[in-house]
Design a protein around this nucleic acid. Structure first.
Lengths: 110, 110
DNA sequence: CTTTTATTTCGACGATTATAAAAATATGAA
DNA sequence: TTCATATTTTTATAATCGTCGAAATAAAAG
């Protein structure tokens, strides 16, 4: 992955509302949620939500599909995984990183 | 890790110059580099570099130590690892994530 | 066709960010 | 002390960002 793309994806996630949206969608799984439900859960106005969904999509972190009047959004796990791989390399890829090459355990992350 | 902190760290890394600084420091290892050397390598003016170093430090991603007139900066691998753990949970923690819970291999990340 | 519902786009606003020249601070050398 | 070097802080400016009301678009229902 190019640094540019990593920056783009990091920037997409580096915002409270957007990280909340992404986490919400990850919890929900591959089927995703329609925009309205996300807006209700996170208490975002439609305009604001749409702005953030576009931002996450532009970064390649979301997939979307239309079903009638509803548009369902779901995480692009592959893209997120590629980002994690990039970060792992850039955190632990150096020969002198003493922490090891696997991300912290779930405990450490909480 | 709280979402707030994750956002702060993601934001710190979500900028071309700062990601380059961090990657440069990771490559260099725990001993770090002094500000001047970073500025030379990445061709940043002292003021701009200082701004970014402060930003990365504020997010807890850098450690620094003074040696004479020089200030050496090095990555805080533990902090970065905690961030990776947080993201891993939020990418693969959902029951329905089909990609598995380890970040992509080094190949996929390139 | 008209109405209702879901979502996006537009327009405006204040807030934050990235940059860098210039001044200030701090440390070591002469 | 005086000078030179390393880094930060200050100040200013242009650009980007997050938010939301209002209008526009799209799709289904009556």
């Amino acid at each position: 992955m190019k640094a540019e793309i990593a920056v783009e994806r990091l920037a997409a996630l580096a915002q409270e509302s957007r990280l909340a949206i992404f986490r919400c969608l990850v919890q929900e799984g591959p089927d995703g949620l329609c925009a309205g439900d996300i807006a209700t859960r996170l208490k975002l106005t439609p305009a604001t939500l749409s702005f953030h969904l576009k931002e996450l999509s532009r970064a390649g972190l979301l997939k979307s599909r239309q079903e009638g009047r509803f548009i369902y959004y779901a995480p692009d796990f592959k893209a997120m995984n590629a980002l994690l791989g990039y970060l792992t390399e850039n955190c632990c890829g150096g020969a002198s990183c003493g922490v090891g090459c696997t991300p912290a355990s779930a405990e450490a992350a909480r």
